[in-house]
Amino acid sequence: MKVIDLSMPLYTGMDVFPGDPEVKIDVVHTYERDTWELRHLNMGSHTGTHVDAYSHMHEGKETLDEIPIERFFGKAQVVELCQDWPREVGLFFIEEIGIEELNRIIDLNPGFVGGNITEDLERALLDKDIITYTRLINLELIPKGKTFMFYGLPLKIKSGDGSPVRAIAIIEN
């Protein structure tokens, strides 16, 4: 079994989407002074590697705490535009994919889609109750077309529109 970390590290000053809150992580307590460590995190809900709830782009749709936890993990594949894609398996794209592929994706009934997807495609997928993941890293380390288990669990934010995740791929040998 091989585990691949698909998550960006979070740190003060990291790149964010224009207009989103800047990331600031401050040490509040230290071992030397307090005998424990604690950090104050200040960032937007769509910082770094993150998942988008349907409500992110569609008023009245389900929020993070309303989407069943089972929707945030499952079988997946890294795929290319030029190949056949599997049915009912999460799809991840290294190359950019846009709205023109919406019907192809919907016909395959994936539980989630992620990687290099355009904002228009993200909006359309969320409208169809397909969860989206963005700012994933290390997808190129996963063999294309090989099924693996993906986990991208969000924080359970009440009425949350999105959340940073620790996303991983587990590949069986």
Rank of each mutant, 00 (worst) to 15 (best):
Y133Q: 12
L136E: 02
M57K: 13
I130W: 03
K75H: 12
L126V: 03
D127Q: 13
N138T: 04
L153G: 01
E32N: 11
M8E: 13
I131V: 15
E172W: 12
F73M: 15
L136F: 15
I94Q: 13
K158W: 03
L121T: 05
V165R: 08
K144C: 09
I130Y: 09
H29G: 00
I67R: 14
E37T: 13
Y11N: 12
R87G: 00
P68Y: 04
N42R: 10
M14G: 01
I157V: 12
I25R: 02
D65C: 10
F112R: 01
I94N: 08
D15Y: 10
E22P: 03
L38F: 03
T12C: 11
L153K: 08
D5A: 08
H58G: 00
T132Q: 07
M8H: 09
I106W: 11
T118D: 07
G111A: 06
N138P: 02
S7E: 00
E122R: 15
G98C: 06
K75Y: 09
L125M: 05
T134H: 14
N173C: 09
K144M: 09
L136M: 15
T49W: 05
Y133V: 11
G115W: 02
G162Y: 04
E95F: 08
F17D: 10
T47N: 04
I131N: 00
E119L: 15
P164Y: 08
W36Q: 07
P154W: 12
P18K: 07
Y151T: 10
E59W: 10
T49D: 09
E70D: 14
E88Y: 05
I171H: 11
L64D: 00
L125E: 09
E96I: 02
S7R: 06
I157C: 01
L64Q: 03
K144P: 06
H29C: 11
R104H: 11
L125G: 02
V78I: 13
M8S: 10
Y133P: 04
R135K: 11
D127K: 15
D26S: 14
L139A: 11
T134E: 10
I130S: 06
L81M: 11
Y133W: 09
G115R: 02
T118L: 06
Y151Q: 07
V16C: 08
P154Q: 14
E22W: 03
L41E: 12
L41V: 15
D161E: 13
G160Y: 06
L141I: 01
S45R: 12
P110C: 04
S163V: 00
V28S: 08
E88R: 15
T47Q: 06
F93R: 00
F73Q: 14
F72E: 02
R33H: 12
G162D: 06
V113I: 11
V89K: 13
P86G: 01
L136H: 01
M57A: 13
E59C: 08
Y133H: 14
K24S: 06
T30W: 05
L38K: 12
G74K: 10
